[in-house]
Structures are given as structure tokens and as C-alpha cells.
Write a protein that binds this DNA or RNA. Structure first.
Lengths: 147, 147
DNA sequence: ATAGATGCAAATATTTTGCCGCCTG
DNA sequence: CAGGCGGCAAAATATTTGCATCTAT
């Protein structure tokens, strides 16, 4: 049910190639970070993660590649009012997020009621619901322990 | 259970006064727009709404007043990745939103399962959940009819 | 060989901040 | 009348775009 990191990485490369995009070292480095990250990195964080393996890549290129992946539906973009955008290339479909207000960690909770809630919204309003963005804010167990 | 517009307007004025903030014509105009709007206006839209009644107010002042209200918890800020931020001064507590992807209208669906979902998230993760942001995207009935 | 990608820098858009004169309390 | 507030403009931040050069195919 969960796609593992190496598989997801190869998947992303393959999808780009299939669509006729060129496979460059910069793109491979960016794809690896996006496939590996479970922490929902910002563009800046992807950029940092690439400096180690491929130091000459520019931030502009990171944005351009993310833009392509976003249009392809291979990356989920999470916008925040205060922070910069965060990206999820591991699970690019809508799913709930749980954000620690203290350490800013973002995790994916496993929940069963999402479909029920979505259906309730659709039935009560007459909308044709096609997507969602469900964020919960709170304190993670680690931060609760630390006080 | 719903606070009507005039009541909410007086409430906002009173809350500002109580906290020691000065009541100026500009602030009254901004508060009226925020209390009246059910459409979740942007700062720019609040600014436009004020030009009619109080043409000399500046956009900077709109941002400053919204900033004060946000810190007081009297306005809910909704950030979007692509769009500018939207503000809800009528119901400044967390609640689900339903956003039409065609006409960009934002409405508040009436749902019962939100608390259940929140509790499920908390129980399954050990987080202490304190807030949420629940957005559903789709086509509103009007846009469905128009094709 | 060539269309497309990179890198750099300038442009854009939104929100925040600084400062001075004015008005509320 | 004193300190907060409004208006204006500059600054700060995040992202997009333009263009010359380079490279994957």
C-alpha cells in the first residue's frame, strides 16, 4: 500500500522520461530528495539537500523542477500563510497532515473517517468534491514530554 | 448559535476597546467589512470594500488592523499556495471550508463528523490536537449547472 | 544538431516595517 | 497633550520569469 522510497524515486524518473522531459543530474538529485523526504520539505530545504550531492544546482532550478512535477500531479504543494510552501513527492495525493506547532514536524496520520467526512460535505452542500486539504495542529508526543 | 452581522460587528469593536486599542474611523470601516463578509475576503478585497465608505484608508492600514485582530484571535487567516491570504472575521474559530475551484467562492459546510475525525487523529497518533484547517475543493452547484 | 535545461539575475507579488505628522482618548 | 495610529514608501520574503549558455538525446 505504501510505495517505498527507491521505488518511488524510479517511478518519478520514469514518469518524467515518459512525458518527454530530459533526465539531468540536477533533476535526479531533486527527485531523490523529494522521494526520500517524509518531512515535507520546502523548496529551500530541497535545495539544501542537493548541495551535498550536487553543489552547482541553483534554487531557481529547484523551483522549476518542482513546478513541472506539480503540474504533472507528482508532487503535492502545501501552502502556509506564514511559512514557505512545503512539498510532498512521496504521497502526491490528498491526505491529512498533522503539524506540531512547537517543532514544526509534519506527519501523516492514519485515519479512516476522511472518506466519510468528504461524503458528508458533498451530500450536505451539493458540491462535487474533487480534492481536499486536511491539516491538524497540535503538540507531538516528543514535545509534550519535553514540556 | 450563529452570531449575526451587526452583533459580531459590535463585538469586534468592544473587544478592541477592551484591549485598549483606539477606535478610529478606519478601524470601524475595516471591522464592518470583516463582520459582514461571508466570502472570506483577501486584504485587497477588504481594502476595496472600504474605499466606498472611507476612501482615504491605505492598504498598509488594512494589513496592520488585520494583524492586530489575528493576534487577538478575532480573525482567522487562511493562507493559500497560489492565491493571497483570505480572512474570516465572522467565524474566527477553526471550521471546514468548501472552495469552488471554478468561481473561487468559499463557503462553510455544516458537518457533524469533524469532531470524530479530530478525535481519531489524536487517538491514533498521541498528539495533543489543538486546532485544524479543513478545506474541501470542488465544483459548487452553480458552476456544475453552467458546465 | 537542436530543442530544451541550467544558472544567474531581474521581475513580480504579497506582506511587513519605518518614519513622521495627526488624532483619539 | 501624549502615545498610539494612519499614510506613504521602502524593505523583506517567496516565487516566477527572461535570457544567454550549455547539454541530453
Amino acid at each position: 500500500m505504501e510505495t517505498d522510497t527507491p521505488t518511488r524515486y524510479r517511478q518519478l524518473v520514469e514518469h518524467l522520461r515518459t512525458r518527454g522531459y530530459r533526465i539531468t543530474p540536477q533533476r535526479l538529485a531533486i527527485l531523490r530528495v523529494l522521494a526520500e523526504s517524509d518531512g515535507h520539505p520546502s523548496a529551500e530545504q530541497v535545495f539544501e539537500g542537493i548541495r551535498e550531492s550536487y553543489p552547482t544546482t541553483s534554487l531557481g532550478t529547484v523551483y522549476k523542477v518542482i513546478g513541472v512535477l506539480r503540474e504533472m500531479g507528482e508532487v503535492l504543494e502545501l501552502g502556509f500563510a506564514d511559512d514557505s510552501n512545503r512539498y510532498d513527492g512521496a504521497k502526491p495525493y490528498p491526505h491529512p497532515h498533522l503539524i506540531c506547532v512547537r517543532c514544526r514536524k509534519i506527519m501523516d496520520p492514519q485515519v479512516s473517517l476522511v472518506d466519510d467526512l468528504t461524503q458528508e460535505v458533498a451530500e450536505r452542500t451539493g458540491y462535487h468534491v474533487i480534492s481536499h486539504r486536511l491539516d491538524f495542529y497540535g503538540f507531538c508526543p516528543d514535545c509534550l514530554a519535553e514540556g
